[in-house]
Design a protein around this nucleic acid. Sequence first.
DNA 1: TATTGTTATACTCTATAACTATA
DNA 2: TATAGTTATAGAGTATAACAATA
Lengths: 164, 164
Amino acid sequence: MTTTATRTSPRKRKSNGLRPQIDADEIGLDALVGHAGYAVRRFQIWIFQDFIRTLSEVDIRPTQYSVLTVIGANPGLSQMAVAKRLGIERARLVHLLDSLEQRKLVKRIKSKADRRSHALHLTAQGETALAKFKRLAAEHERHVEDKIGKANRERLLQILAGFS
Amino acid sequence: MTTTATRTSPRKRKSNGLRPQIDADEIGLDALVGHAGYAVRRFQIWIFQDFIRTLSEVDIRPTQYSVLTVIGANPGLSQMAVAKRLGIERARLVHLLDSLEQRKLVKRIKSKADRRSHALHLTAQGETALAKFKRLAAEHERHVEDKIGKANRERLLQILAGFS
DNA sequence: TATTGTTATACTCTATAACTATA
DNA sequence: TATAGTTATAGAGTATAACAATA
């Protein structure tokens, strides 16, 4: 156990005199490098930031996009069904839908079969909007390709297919 | 545009009579399937939950582990340096360190070179504790291997190496 | 003037619990 | 009694802004 670390340290140009004053790129991550979770978290943050930036003109965030997409592909679903499918808390989905309903993208229709539940549908406006969101999301996806490479992106999707 | 979706739908045993009442596994994800971000997010949630569960006996969460690991490998770092390296807001790091300092794992030492900044060190107790955390984190990492396979985990680390 | 650590505020997200109206 | 949707609360986590001490 030494007191000064940074294993490979090239000991760069020092600004003042004594003590570390290490630049960010000189700092070793140690055990973190071997953890899939760390890399995955950093990557996920990058992806979400790019998604938000790419869809900023339409003000749609990843979770909102996932809700719209699932409702679009499965009209008539209940809130519980959407929440379960996407791993969102049903309490949280209420607020997400409030916002999407205010924006006239989604409507809640009282189910006749079970009067406790709502059947979720896109509005006509929601359908056309979603088509645009999908085009922008595809653009975001190309940014991912540019970042890690086309082949790597596909390998990644294969490896993680079980988690969708 | 049909009103009932779920493309491949095997049309399972229905409970009552009319309308969807679709099971979670019958719900199609549509465009989401092609998005790396969606798979990565779901995987990251799974990883963090397993990490938290595996380290629950020592009550250490992923971010706390990353802070301890970086300080352990680079004693004397300032808070700014740690925050930058890990991509944590410096305001947030303050609270993280407050908690780790209360638990006697970390100490802040006033720097003589720059009296604005604190040099961060593990306590003796922090050193031994971190060794245990690392053993548990390695156990968690084996859970990841069990989940996606040893080769896939390594491929993943290679693909995402640039994000550490 | 700029930077370090700090405090504070706001908004997102997760995790619960409890309430209501139905079933 | 159980479930769907709702409301409310508490804790992480992210994003800012502002302040004091120091550079």
